[in-house]
Amino acid sequence: MALLDYANPTRFLRLSQRILPWLTGACVIAFAVGLYMSLFVAPEDYQQGQTVKIMYIHVPAAWLCMMTYSIMALSSLGTLVWKHPLADVSAKAAAPIGAAFTLIALITGSLWGRPMWGTYWEWDARMTSVLVLLLMYLGLIALWRTMEDPIKAGKAAAILTLVGALNLPIIKFSVDWWYTLHQPASVMRMDGPTIHPALLTPLLIMALASTLLFFVLHLQAMQNEIMRRRVRALRLRAASSTRPARMTATSTAAE
């Protein structure tokens, strides 16, 4: 089982420290190329005009907020089934990043919607699903923040993540159904198989750059999380070893 070799947090820290500079470099290069192409090279869309440039952020962000949830769901399986010690670290570190990308997808979506739909917020099926996803991310973060013990919080969050992952297709389906029931098909359809290659290339590069960015941030956040657990363990040990000695001297330290 090769995966278990990286189960050791210390080994993971060393390995991630070696990978990170390369990943960061690749991410910066991909963003430089992608931003240059999407802002200066890509032509306007015949329907959306220049606002198609917003899509170069919106689509990668929307892709990432789903990828992040998938990674969290996989990590949760790792926590519950394989009891991998890094799995809940990975899930916890991914949640705020996923929430941030979801927020970006929502904001860019509504900034695109204002010129296109004439309103900042349309209860459009896709936007609504993304909003529900943001709620789920924030709920998970809240759960992690309210539980003191990281191991127990990790397990509780893993269960919630998996129930959410089971629920997401149902939510998607029901929101789509709800939308077709309530809305006439007047809103322009964005996704189609006939996307011009000149528009597609920058989009793919931006998606690659964003994915790299996610992994850079995720690895760093995981390192932070491992350090946080170390600090917590050391604090607990420090408290338990010093308390008997100081008990007589300072009775005020009753915590």
Binding site: L135, L138, G139, A142, K152, I159, N167
Partner: peptide, 25 residues
Amino acid sequence: LTVSLRRGGLLLAVLVVPLTIPVLI
């Protein structure tokens, strides 16, 4: 999930509401 928390009521609602959207719809 919130059984061990002293004041889990509000958190419970926040966690569960997104999951109940299909039922509501």
